[in-house]
Design a protein around this nucleic acid. Structure first.
Lengths: 346, 346
DNA sequence: CTGTTAGCGCTTTCAT
DNA sequence: ATGAAAGCGCTAACAG
């Protein structure tokens, strides 16, 4: 049988005080005499009372809950971010509402409206499709504190943390060039996402710095999934005249797909083709060959995001933007010097 | 500037009716005249009104939200289940609170108490550590509808969906035996989880059916992680006198870890050692060699769980338990006939 | 069929 | 320092 829940009134009654006093104790207001506070606290524990968060939410106009909106919780990059955020904000007895946007703009807007109806205090928008302008407007309109995670929002008053992908991709591209590659394929993510654009830009800048001309046929946009990587690799090795000797994938899942394709075709990694991924998801180092990848500071991203949020809502001032760095982790999917084999398979 | 939210009262006023009528329209009660209903609906859309779910929750005693509690959202098996559940219950404008238990019993209990304070309607307990008795008691106490996912709960009045792991592991074991293996190692999950026990039991039954004696040294308990699999494989190939010619891992993550270990030691898969995983996570087929694995019906698990919940809370009757089947997906990490190489490396 | 009224459990003026 | 009372936005009797 469901036991009737203990209310603040019963606590007040049992402690011989008014509900207001109990409320004060609960919220650590200073204007309660120590004796009363102690008595109330004791009654609370003995009766196993716990405030009704929904009632609190109604009167306060906000509940003690946040939400995280990700494009795809099934992508290890995002699930790890969720985990970290959850860990940190959970400590402050905040809870976390999970939403999957599937990377659809309208869905993101719907979700925000839904959050408003639930009196959610703040939302972590991870790799949002929505332009910053809209985020700002919608969140202001609904009085929700946003924190943008993993998307560059430079010229807006929006708390945000992201990774300098462009620099990291320049480095990755240069690494390949230094190892003798000139025909470097690039598997891009959907161009509506700022990260995709930044990564592509890094690749292009890397080429440019070494006087290598961009070839449209060596750039293929795809989804950030295994299937997306597979398909893009297939395209690059079947549909165009001259194959690349190296492939930079915009994330590790794509790299996994590309590697599966190459293996299936009997193309040796890294002897014939070098592969670089991005993210450094847990399996990356355990693949065969172990994947060279641009390690994203995933945990840090989640951690900083959570801190920004906590800071934002408590001090009510715009926290500084944070730009994290990614770094190339060299494993075995790239040959350390490609000179002697760079003409194989052309 | 945060715009003041539209309330039911303003709608009532604008439509020239009472708040009660608006509420009736909102909740599709039949006793409203069509004309009034139409008028109210129009006002609702033009004013962009959306009911305050928190206020509703307070008066109803329950909010329109569910929660899912997983041991580790960062495990692709669980993240996929969350995704599916979210997809389905999201359609009914329910939202989903996410909690990570880290597989800790006390944490699970804490979470349930927290859910009670938030007037959550139902909770999906995925691979819970809590014994069924406690789940039943706690949930009844707090009036939360539980659905147990991916854990066997046979003799309790608890809505549940799980997978017949024992049969699947018997089959996997027999598959290896048919291919000439007699020394089959088993990497088990933490024994407090019913799934781990069922999988181990399947392995043991498989051996028994073929008159192969169990060897304690060929069974190693570990975590359901890459690191756990790596460590268990290391143990089996370094700490015991006689190596297995095949390894069954209790999940794919463990298999990834074990494969990484073997590769590092130069041990050939499947020539020297065959590997079987369990789950069939997205990357399984793209590993090298592609992983033979016991495919769990992950999406189905989530889908059925969501349906059970919806059914449970709407008809208020105990839905039937559902047992799903897993099946062996043979790829290339197992040799199809091991006879000729079964003595290698012993 | 429709409106009036009384809370749901809590926080917060406003008195004292 | 404490209590009384009002009210957050909504739903559910209860009248009519």
């Amino acid at each position: 049988m469901a036991v009737k829940k203990v209310t603040i009134e019963e606590i007040a009654h049992a402690a011989g005080v008014s509900p207001a006093t109990v409320s004060r104790v609960l919220n650590n207001k200073r204007n309660v005499s120590p004796e009363l506070a102690a008595r109330v606290k004791e009654v609370i524990t003995t009766l196993g009372y716990r405030p009704n968060e929904i009632a609190r939410g109604l009167v306060n106009g906000k509940t003690s809950a946040f939400s995280v909106v990700v494009p795809d919780i099934d992508n290890p990059f995002f699930s790890k971010i969720c985990k970290v955020i959850q860990d940190i904000i959970g400590k402050d007895t905040y809870s976390l509402l999970l939403y999957n946007s599937n990377g659809v703009l309208d869905k993101e807007k719907e979700i925000i409206e839904e959050l408003a109806a639930r009196l959610i205090k703040g939302v972590f928008l991870v790799a949002p499709r929505m332009p910053p302008r809209d985020i700002l407007d919608l969140c202001k309109h609904y009085d929700i504190s946003p924190v943008v995670v993993d998307a560059k929002v430079e010229s807006y008053r929006l708390p945000a943390v992201w990774v300098d992908n462009t620099t990291a991709f320049i480095e990755a591209t240069e690494y390949l060039i230094r190892n003798g590659h000139r025909k470097i394929g690039f598997i891009a993510g959907p161009h509506v996402v700022t990260n995709s654009e930044d990564r592509l830009r890094g690749y292009l800048l890397g080429l440019q710095r070494h006087g290598i001309e961009k070839a449209e046929s060596l750039i293929r946009e795809s989804d950030y999934t295994i299937a997306g990587g597979y398909e893009a690799a297939r395209y690059m090795f079947e549909e165009i005249e001259s194959r690349p000797t190296a492939l930079i994938c915009s994330n590790d899942l794509m790299a996994v797909g590309a590697m599966a394709y190459l293996r299936q075709k009997g193309i040796q990694i890294p002897d014939e083709v070098s592969i670089i991924g991005c993210d450094d998801i847990d399996v990356a180092g355990s693949l065969y060959p172990p994947l060279t990848t641009i390690a994203q500071p995933i945990s840090k991203l989640g951690k900083v995001a959570a801190q920004l949020m906590l800071q934002y809502i408590s001090h009510d001032e715009l926290p500084p933007k944070v730009i994290l760095h990614a770094e190339l982790v060299v494993r075995e999917s790239t040959s350390s010097n490609h000179e002697e084999v760079s003409n194989v398979g052309v």
